[in-house]
């Protein structure tokens, strides 16, 4: 194909340019800003652990945890979304917005840990997705047990064991 044929073909094809405000919509699986569903987050910091550019930080206090994300540092690789055990993270399927001041897009969310139903101590509680992954069937007992803090769960275990012994002896 000679250059003249190429030019003629281009002329025949006409203008293919998108006029400026027009845009090619990003594909459905485009990786944009990371968004968190705070209700689903258990504060495990897996996202912060896998983040290659340290864009995500999770800091733990006694009763709360903070999830902070700075898109300026983000590589938009999606590893955090893949790593999230509770599917609390997802990525917007659109381009991140333009900004004018450094750090303008950075966000920090704080969430209080749920409290133990037994002793009232704040602790990390498993979400529904986590329970379903851990147990083949999530029964009411699992629900009640997992709403207790680990110490209360231990106590519950002791109680039931003592009870079991007592019943065993009584039936003997």
């Amino acid at each position: 194909m000679s250059i003249w044929e190429i030019l003629a073909e281009n002329l025949r094809q006409g203008v293919v340019t998108l006029r400026y405000p027009q845009r090619v919509p990003p594909p459905a699986r485009y990786r944009g800003l990371v968004q968190i569903e705070l209700e689903d987050c258990v504060g495990c910091a897996s996202c912060a652990y896998v983040c290659v550019s340290a864009a995500i930080h999770v800091t733990e206090e006694r009763e709360t945890f903070c999830w902070s994300y700075d898109p300026a540092k983000c590589t938009f690789c999606g590893r955090c979304v893949d790593a999230c055990p509770t599917s609390a993270l997802q990525m917007q399927a659109e381009c991140p917005p333009i900004y004018h001041c450094a750090g303008a897009l950075a966000v920090t969310y704080t969430r209080a840990y749920p409290r133990c139903e037994g002793c009232g101590k704040p602790f990390k509680v498993a979400t529904q997705i986590l329970r379903q992954r851990a147990y083949t069937e999530v029964s009411g007992e699992v629900e009640t047990l997992l709403r207790l803090c680990p110490v209360c769960r231990q106590k519950e275990a002791i109680k039931s064991m003592v009870e079991a012994r007592r019943i065993k002896e009584a039936t003997r």
Binding site: Y20, P26, C74, F76, C95, P96, I98, Y99, A102
Partner: peptide, 25 residues
């Protein structure tokens, strides 16, 4: 710095938008 275009890399559309922002500045 007047305009930041986030992305790694940003889409050409986003770069155009950033430049349009820069033009306003």
């Amino acid at each position: 710095v007047d305009v930041y275009v986030p992305g790694c890399p940003p889409r050409p559309n986003a770069i155009l938008e950033g430049i349009a922002n820069a033009i306003e500045q």
